[in-house]
Design a protein around this nucleic acid. Structure first.
Lengths: 221, 221
DNA sequence: AGTAGCAAAATTGTTGACAAAAACGTGACG
DNA sequence: CGTCACGTTTTTGTCAACAATTTTGCTACT
């Protein structure tokens, strides 16, 4: 009885991961077409597994497939990202509410450590904001995880955040507002630690609403 | 220049729709395996298109595919449906808030007509509750549509409701509480009509929370 | 009887070839 | 000059056959 279900991933699985990462890193730019013949020649696989991988990516909303016209990397319009932020506002508020209800001391310590790490990053290299973005996601992910709602985790951390990431590498990358965000994060974790679901909910909603407002302001420059 | 992009759907598309409907209608029961050879023989198509259809269904969370083990119809556990109801509570609250903000008179009339239709159905055949379920979904769908957030519509009406439907045809089908629900619906539409976003949000959250509580009570019988 | 091992069957993963559709380019015509 | 038609080329949709993995069933042995 082998506990490990498999040793090598299938070609379809490999292609899925490779293409997904290529899309999320920007190597495949939004709107560009993914030619089957070309792509499966590059990765050295057949068209069958590739088409399955593309269908999975379609399920993640990362590519759009039209019959007899092939697959294109999704292009997220500004109006769509605003809508997604409205959804995030609601769902991450819920995540905070649940997190404040369910978090134990270990959870709180983990959240707190992310904050201190992020604060450290900021004082050290205040020019480079790449690790801050990462830390920002770390905190949001961790809160959703602490919420205990696995469906919510799946939805937010696997589906919606990928779309947000896809948007970020499009026309106008917002510069973000690290100092204010860090302050808001601290208050949110405080509320979770104090087991105040309503406040945690409110603060997270406001936090994401602020980010959305800034998005709106940036795209009407 | 033909405006209609295509006349006949692809085999993959047909298989996707047929299998999806079979799952949602209960013809394919949750947990049952979907054999490739068997299935593609029934529908008279090749394995390639069938596998693509299965990948799409996997993206809808209606089937689970494991490497070298094939596809099974998803089985929604009670804990999962509770989590989904928590998400619905949050998202449909948002939908109501947006609907109350954006609804014009035509929208309000449409919502109102669904309510009156539902009330009519109830007084006529108070034994058969099948059309009530349909009307219930009609109202929820319409509110989400009126909200104007297309991403939210996609998420709620295409993804989450399918999972709810899949759960309904599993072990313990809840009898539901039509009269109370109708009353709650009426109040929600009232709030939307009065352009009171906060109240509409609150009422819808409470409405779904009540449904969730009843789910919880039913599965701990 | 129960189990370990091995062979046979069934099922999934993958490929290449063929059919059909769309995209492209060329040329004739108004 | 623009546009319509048509043949070529490219790309997608589909199938059937092969390879690899899993499952099944049988046999032999303790």
């Amino acid at each position: 009885m082998t506990v490990l279900p498999r040793t090598t991933p299938t070609n379809s699985e490999s292609a899925f991961q490779i293409i997904r990462d290529a899309i999320l890193s920007g190597a495949l730019s939004p709107g560009s077409k993914i030619s089957e013949a070309h792509t499966c020649q590059i990765y050295g696989i057949g068209r069958g597994p590739l088409r399955e991988a593309l269908r999975r990516l379609e399920g993640c909303k990362l590519v759009e497939i039209k019959p007899n016209a092939g697959a294109k990397v999704s292009f997220i319009k500004p109006s769509q990202i605003i809508e997604i932020y409205e959804i995030r506002e609601s769902l991450e508020g819920l995540a905070c509410k649940l997190a404040a209800t369910n978090a134990n001391k270990t959870d709180c310590l983990a959240l707190r450590s992310i904050i201190t790490e992020q604060r450290l990053q900021m004082t050290q290299n205040n020019g480079d904001l790449a690790p801050l973005k990462e830390g920002d996601l770390d905190l949001h992910f961790s809160i959703v995880k602490v919420s205990g709602n696995t469906q919510l985790f799946q939805l937010l951390c696997h589906d919606l955040y990928q779309l947000v990431q896809l948007y970020r590498l499009q026309p106008n990358t917002s510069p973000s507002r690290p100092h204010i965000a860090l302050e808001e994060h601290t208050q949110i974790v405080d509320a979770i630690e104090r087991k105040d679901p309503e406040l945690a909910d409110l603060l997270m909603r406001r936090h994401i609403s602020n980010a959305r407002q800034e998005l709106l302001a940036n795209l009407s420059l």
